[in-house]
Amino acid sequence: MNVLALLRPPTGYLWIALGLAAVAPLPMPAAAQSGPEIMQKHRQVNRVKDEEEQLVLRLVSKSGAMKERRVVRFTMNGADDLNKILIRFLAPRDVENTALLTWEAKDGNDDQWLYLPATRNPKRIAAAGKKNRFMGTDFTYEDLRPENLAVHTYTSAGDEAIDGQDCWLIESVPANERVAADTAYRKRRLWIRKDNYALVKREYYDKQGRLEKIESLRKLVSVTGTAWRSNEFEMQDVQNGTKTVVVVERRAVDRGLKDDFFSEAELTRGGS
């Protein structure tokens, strides 16, 4: 009796298996992916090394009045999938060069620096301010980051179509008590498109479990490889009746930004 002979798969199946393995990297909408799996995939395909965006922020009040700000945002994805982000105001004139620098940290206690051009030195800001709204917009600091998979627990909640596109519906809650304390939301829901893993909609629920905000991401463009970005996204505060619309005027990815770009020196330099 040759036991090894029994263990060897039939040669035909081997070729088929190898063939399949060759085409495996292509994203295939699998029958039942879990929440974390989907999110991992979402991050993975949409990750770029670095990114520069010139954004117009339109803040719309409850009565429909609008004010406009212009910023440039640099993002760099580094080790452990942690980001460094630099945001600088371009307009209006009296806040030009106001800048915010963020270094994400593994434990969620990010480092942040704020620079007001009319002062001399930048200030370090406490991380607990993450749930504060960014400069009068409807986005909080945490909203403006890419999904931080480490601090959230994701569960798949079925499927839904948004604008005719099939999406996975994912529910996200803070991973632990400490994270829960830092965040403004008890729960969020995310809609990830099945075809390209792009995020198209997010709902934010406040600590009382009531729907607070709805984020819609439109005008999706492919920026490189598998990565997609939205060129126009909007955060609507349903409780207050305000909304912020962000329009991407210009984007450049993978330009090779370095760590030292995301420094206090760059923060205070101004003009870019």
């Binding site: 105001f89 009296d94 051009p117 009319a118 002062t119 504060n132």
Partner: peptide, 12 residues
């Protein structure tokens, strides 16, 4: 300008 920048922070 400083006042404008402070207000930017305080907005909310």
């Amino acid at each position: 300008d400083l006042i404008a920048q402070y207000m930017l922070l305080l907005e909310g």
